[in-house]
Design a protein around this nucleic acid. Structure first.
Length: 567
RNA sequence: UGGGGGAUCGUCUAGCGGCAGGACGAUGGGUUCUGGCCCCAUUAACCGAGGUUCGAAUCCUCGUCCCCCAGCCA
């Protein structure tokens, strides 16, 4: 029995479980916290990508699902790499994804004074000291993965001397690199992170928010846990590579006897086929000019996907479908594309767009006649309305829809073949016009007047339906056809002597000169639609008056291509 | 070779001692004025070897493979 209906009170959709939700649920049930508080803590040193979207959806999603709050906090402790440009783009991207952070954005730099006081306290506790070894020496003293490190000669400096030195570090008495504040833990610790990690370094650098107020800046391990604590974060969620740092996270909070102690949980970062995800590599693609910028529609950045026409809801759905676990993964690009199509199929209006035009002259249609036909914006959803489109003697169809020699199972246009022009007439190809090179440049055809509106009373079967445009009324458009940035699943799998940028797909962008229906003249950049039978397209910001520029967001699934590929 | 993690259909993921389930993909079919959407079906997995148990993906032991850590980056 497959036709049983679900009871009305059963939810249609339940968000999938994951191990972090389990923890949150258990903590809430145990009364460990009054409410959950998470945070998304990007460093403003680059643009956000789809991997960040996973973290954003997780952190904000947890807050939403369990009635808590999520902070946006910029981890801005490295002034030489960070900038307001990145801060602004990150805020815009999070908002665009559909999330609202609790209160104002937070900045680790807002906590610099408190952090400094905590450092002083650590010194007074005898748990931190000023080291005056060079960076090089510190590395040598650290030992290796298999050998213990050894103590710095400065490790036994007294509290007063440390206090004095640290004060003078802050006061700007020393040049960069001369001293560093280190936690005093254990140079023989099996976890290298715990071998007296540096927590403050001298950097005479201008900070994008604090200006020149500071010349000592705290490091990640010291800053992050305390920032979480200050904000009352309950669950501090990060990626797997910070697993080793958790021990230090806990050490700092325990040693300082802080009023609360957030717990860190790690999940596996997102990897995807056919792209790269690390900040360093994305920067390289931009600076070496392999793409046009951070928001190039081929980039896995949030801004790139936005420009490509991916709806935020599709990204959210994607993040939910990929799940959250602790195992290494490489998600297929096809899943992302599926989520995009699913969303766009529901919402994108259908329009007529011909990407590679082929002119057809309808010999039995009067030269000066124009008829208007009604086209629904979405045949499956009448609520989306309709518009009128003109038909005339000369039209454009898609080059791909004509074959001089029809292969097996071909039911598009070919000499002598009859097809349907969507919502208009049945059309039969009666002749082919070629240029000197033998290329087909124009078709001759006739229509069946009885088929007006796109159907006939005799119920004759016409399998192929084509999109088309009245040549005289069509708007010219530049159409940017995007494909995979890298043809192979793993771009990093380059052979010896080559690097991943050598793998950039030379056909990841091809530009076509096409036409679109006149109703699109007034649309604004960001407008997303479906060119019927072709794909989803989005009006690009490069659009200027009389020169529409469309980005191909995604193709439609192409069953014919598969049939033909199989022979 | 120190320490910390991870291995379930092609891919992602569920499972918490009791019928290995879902999604994507692939394949076949139905429907169709988009070769789209939708619908149906098929495909296909517990890293290995032992052990505990009436019963193990799950618990134990021993292996194998993969990832992370030696920044004054995050």
């Amino acid at each position: 029995m497959t036709s049983e209906k679900k009871p009305a009170d059963e939810p249609l959709y339940t968000p999938p479980p994951n191990f972090i939700k389990d923890v949150v649920k258990a903590d809430l049930a145990a009364g460990k916290h009054a409410a959950v508080r998470t945070r998304f803590p990007p460093e403003p040193n680059g643009y956000l990508h789809i991997g960040h979207a996973k973290s954003i959806c997780l952190n904000f999603g947890l807050a939403n699902e369990f009635g808590g709050a999520c902070n946006l906090r910029f981890d801005d402790t490295n002034p030489t790499k960070e900038s307001v440009e990145y801060v602004d783009s990150i805020k815009a991207d999070v908002r665009w994804l559909g999330f609202s952070w609790d209160g104002e954005p937070r900045y680790a730099s807002d906590y610099f004074e408190q952090l400094y006081e905590f450092a002083v306290k650590l010194i007074k506790l005898g748990k931190a000291y000023v080291d005056s070894l060079t960076a090089e020496e510190i590395r040598e003293y650290r030992g290796t993965l298999t050998e213990p490190g050894k103590n710095s000669p400065y490790r036994e400096r007294g509290v007063e001397e440390n206090l004095d030195l640290f004060t003078r570090m802050r006061a700007g008495e020393f040049p960069d690199g001369t001293h560093v504040l280190r936690a005093r833990i254990d140079m023989a610790h099996p976890n290298i992170v715990m071998r007296d990690p540096a927590i403050y370094r001298i950097r005479h650098a201008h900070h994008h928010r604090t200006g020149d107020a500071w010349c000592v800046y705290p490091l990640y391990d010291f800053t992050h846990c305390l920032s979480d604590m200050i904000e009352g974060v309950t669950h501090s969620i990060c990626t797997l590579e910070f697993e080793n740092n958790r021990e230090l996270y806990d050490w700092v909070l325990d040693t300082l006897h802080t009023p609360c102690h957030p717990r860190q949980y790690e999940f596996a970062r997102l990897n995807m086929t056919h792209t790269v995800m690390s900040k360093r590599r994305l920067i390289q693609l931009v600076t070496e000019g392999h793409v046009a910028g951070w928001d190039d529609p081929r980039m896995p950045t949030i801004s790139g996907m936005r420009r490509r026409g991916y709806p935020p809801a599709a990204l959210r759905t994607f993040c939910e479908r990929i799940g959250v676990s602790r195992s290494e993964n490489r998600v297929e690009f096809a899943l992302l594309e599926h989520c995009v199509r699913e969303e766009l199929n529901r919402n994108a209006p259908r329009v007529m767009g011909v990407v590679r035009p082929l002119k057809v002259v309808i010999e039995n249609y009067p030269e000066d006649q124009v008829e208007w036909f009604e086209f629904p914006f979405n045949p499956e959803d009448p609520a989306q309305g309709s518009r009128q489109l003109p038909f005339s003697r000369e039209i454009y169809v898609e080059q791909d829809d004509f074959r001089e020699e029809a292969p097996k199972k071909w039911f598009r246009l070919a000499p002598g073949a009859e097809v349907r022009l969507r919502y208009a007439y049945y059309l039969t190809c009666t002749g082919v016009v070629k240029n000197a090179d033998g290329q087909v440049v124009e078709l001759r055809a006739t229509i069946d007047p009885e088929s007006r509106g796109g159907w006939t009373k005799d119920g004759r079967k016409v399998k192929g339906t084509l999109h088309w445009l009245s040549a005289a009324h069509a708007l010219p458009a530049e159409v940017r056809l995007y494909d995979l940035l890298f043809p192979m699943e793993n771009p990093m799998g380059a052979e010896e002597g080559r690097t991943f940028t050598d793998n950039v797909n030379p056909e990841s962008l091809t530009i076509a000169r096409g036409f679109v229906e006149p109703s699109l003249a007034e649309q604004k950049p960001g407008f997303i639609c479906q060119f019927e039978r072709v794909g989803y397209f989005c009006l690009d910001p490069d659009t200027v008056k009389d020169e529409l520029v469309f980005n191909r967001t995604a193709t439609l699934r192409d069953t014919w291509a598969k049939i033909e590929a199989k022979g």
